[in-house]
Write a protein that binds this DNA or RNA. Structure first.
Length: 470
DNA sequence: CTATGGCACGGATT
DNA sequence: AATCCGTGCCATAG
């Protein structure tokens, strides 16, 4: 059953260990792909029917009752409900991108992304081009990216690579702008191109996207400015423009916190791996922590297959035995992954509850090592479990899980507060002193670093109370 | 002269 | 072992 505990790793094989580690570091989306692959070529594995909770419609594990509805809804709101949940949202196979698709301009019926794009461009295409376009569109990722190389498409359809590239270029100009790009980068550039035909785009936008996306995502405007040899102000202008007009993930219309698109868009995390929310979204209610298992049902070993292997003795038996082994290994490893994630999240949510409820200011600084010690697992285990994962908070923002370990976040947010409340631009030294009054002692230099991380201009470039910030 | 950013060092973290 | 972070010192801009 799902809740099996595996405290003792020494009894497990090295293969088991190795696989558990890899699985742990996968995000839910990657895990999904992995499972899909295994499911496809291993007959011993099966995905069994979903069972839904009659009350809340959640998909339930193979056995056991609904983790949320079965809770004795007590006043014990201190302990969050933590559970692993198979989510069908993640059951998007291959080309079917059914969520968050802009309405079809012609029929106003919701359609999937490939269809949506194809309808726009079909009229101006030759029949054979249409075929290729359709082929391309059905190979998009969930975010509307094209991962196959043009050359491969060209080979497959016996066309010139340049033809294909031209076609892709035309597709990119369809709505949602930038679809079929090979990367967020390319998507952004395409959008800039299209926009610049009708609107005025800050000159530096292109070079910022080409060279400095990394910096943007870290709010290191100053560093970026230096790299490009321009002023920080110009960079901020560009950053603002990008955040307001461009979307690095074309197929995704809503994107974390709408008011803070830069931060959200810089994330590589498309789907959260963990959801944290109040029960029924009422802020009064108990917290629910849902660790996503990207399945529509429960994964297990096909019992029929198991029996068959026992009985049948022929030359295939060896292969089948291997399949069986592999399958059970995978199932066990996934269970272990889930178990680790659950333990981790329980700890994490308990420790950081003030942050989750009241905001960044209340972030405690904890280290992975500390958690690892408390859970009695190796530090690297925690690292793997955390890295690359993302969490959706009750306020619907999607943040990287590593944020829970950010030492300086709370101080940074206080700095932000101070500056927002200032009546007159405060110098770093003045901010340093104000912090000291609150019992926080940091070096002046550090205040400067925090500022730049938060994308706040130095005092002499800030002006008392503002033009665009309402 | 003051405010701020760059570079680099050391210690902590991963 | 590699990376990140806070800090001090110094150069530079205003």
């Amino acid at each position: 059953m799902l809740q099996t505990h595996y405290q003792n790793t020494s009894t497990t094989t090295s293969a088991h260990l190795a696989q558990t580690m890899t699985l742990l570091s996968l995000t839910s989306v990657e895990l999904r792909q992995k499972i899909d692959a295994e499911l496809a070529n291993n007959p011993a594995l099966e995905l069994i029917e979903e069972r839904r909770c009659p009350m809340c419609k959640r998909i339930l594990p193979q056995s056991g009752s609904c983790p949320v509805c079965s809770q004795p809804n007590t006043e014990n709101s201190d302990a969050p409900i933590v559970f692993i949940s198979p989510r069908e949202d993640f059951y998007t196979s291959g080309s079917s991108i059914s969520k968050e698709i802009p309405e079809d301009p012609f029929s106003s019926e919701p359609v999937d992304l490939p269809t949506f794009v194809l309808r726009q461009i079909a009229p101006e295409l030759e029949a054979d081009e249409r075929l290729i376009a359709a082929y391309i569109l059905t190979n998009l990722t969930e975010d509307g990216f094209l991962t196959i190389k043009p050359i491969e498409i060209a080979r497959y359809h016996h066309r010139l690579p340049s033809d294909i590239e031209a076609l892709i270029h035309r597709l990119q100009r369809c709505e949602p702008f930038g679809v079929c790009a090979s990367s967020p980068n390319e998507a952004l550039l395409t959008q800039v191109e299209i926009l610049s035909e009708t609107t005025r785009v800050p000159e530096l936008t292109k070079s910022v996207i080409e060279e400095g996306l990394e910096y943007l995502s870290h709010h290191q405007f100053a560093e970026l400015a230096h790299l490009l040899g321009v002023s920080t102000q110009q960079i901020q202008l560009v950053a603002k423009f990008i955040s307001e007009n461009l979307n690095p993930f074309p197929a995704r219309s809503h994107w974390g916190d709408v008011r803070n698109p830069i931060e959200a868009s810089s994330q590589v995390y498309h789907q959260p791996d963990v959801l944290i929310y109040h029960l029924n979204d009422h802020p009064e209610n108990q917290l629910v922590v849902e660790i996503i298992l990207p399945l529509r049902g429960t994964l297990r070993i096909n019992p029929l297959f198991k029996q068959a292997v026992k009985k049948i003795e022929n030359d295939k038996a060896v292969d089948w035995k291997q399949d069986l082994e592999k399958a059970s290994l995978l199932v066990k490893c996934i269970q272990q992954r889930n178990n680790t994630m659950r333990l981790l999240l329980e700890k994490l949510v308990n420790l950081q509850k003030p942050f989750i409820l009241k905001g960044e200011k209340y972030m405690k600084s904890i280290t992975r090592a500390k958690i690892a010690h408390e859970l009695e697992v190796h530090e690297s285990t925690i690292s793997r479990a955390v890295s690359g994962k993302s969490v959706q908070l009750p306020n619907k923002r999607i943040v990287p899980m590593s944020l829970f370990f950010d030492r300086s976040l709370s101080v940074r947010s206080i700095v932000k507060e101070i500056i927002e409340a200032e009546m007159h631009p405060l110098s770093d030294t003045e901010i340093q002193n104000l912090l000291k009054e609150q019992g926080i002692t940091v070096a002046r230099r550090t205040v400067a670093k925090y500022r730049s991380k938060e994308g706040i201009l130095p005092a002499h470039l800030r002006h008392a109370r503002e033009l665009a910030t309402t």
